[in-house]
Simulated scan of single mutants.
Amino acid sequence: MASALGALNAAHASPTARANAAPNSRVGQIASYERAMVQALSIQDPIARDVAIARARSNELAAAANRPVSRDVVTRVDSLLGLPPTPYP
């Protein structure tokens, strides 16, 4: 899985490292994805929530990746960040 994650291995960084990372660093990009997902998950409307989750994955997560983002990669990154499982289209 580590090779599939590629640059997204930055999700292993501690919460403190993510909070203090430079925005354009890989860890900073992962932190941006994490914030976008937390915000998306707080949306009550299920359709709007799914759209926000998809947007976070296609924008922030894809920007941090140096390889294609698959269902398994999303599941692993979300797990490393302590995010709950969510559907992946």
Results as ranks from 00 to 15, higher is better:
S70P: 03
I47V: 14
S14T: 15
A11P: 00
D78N: 15
A56N: 07
D50K: 07
V69R: 09
N66W: 10
R18Q: 13
A17Y: 08
Y33W: 05
P15Y: 08
R76F: 00
I53S: 04
D45R: 10
A21M: 01
P46Y: 03
A36T: 08
G6M: 01
M1E: 05
G28P: 03
A2E: 11
A54M: 08
T75R: 15
P68L: 10
S70K: 01
D78E: 14
A62M: 12
R57G: 05
A64E: 00
L83T: 05
A19E: 09
H12N: 07
N20L: 14
A19F: 04
P89L: 04
A11I: 00
N66L: 08
R49H: 09
T16K: 15
A11W: 00
Y33V: 02
A62V: 13
S32C: 07
Q39L: 11
A56K: 03
A56D: 11
G6T: 04
P87T: 06
A52H: 05
A22W: 09
T86K: 07
L5S: 02
P85G: 09
Y88N: 03
P85N: 13
V69N: 08
L41R: 04
A19S: 13
S14C: 12
S70Q: 04
S58Q: 14
R71E: 14
R18T: 05
L8C: 01
Q39R: 13
A62I: 10
R71H: 12
A11T: 00
V27Y: 04
S42C: 10
A13D: 01
A10S: 15
N66T: 09
A7H: 06
V38K: 13
L81T: 02
A52P: 03
D50Q: 13
P15V: 05
M1V: 05
I43Q: 06
R26T: 09
H12F: 01
A64N: 00
V27A: 10
N9Q: 09
R67W: 06
L41C: 04
R76S: 10
R67C: 02
V27C: 10
S79R: 14
R18K: 15
S58I: 07
A48N: 06
N59G: 11
N20T: 14
N66A: 11
S70A: 06
A62S: 11
A48Q: 09
M1T: 08
E60C: 08
N20G: 04
A62P: 00
A4H: 10
A11S: 12
S14A: 14
V69T: 07
N66M: 04
A65I: 09
A13S: 14
S42V: 08
S70T: 15
V38M: 09
R26A: 11
S25Q: 02
I53E: 11
H12C: 00
T86D: 06
A48P: 02
V51S: 10
N24C: 11
R49E: 08
R55F: 13
G28K: 07
S3I: 02
Y88D: 01
L61Y: 10
P89K: 01
V27G: 11
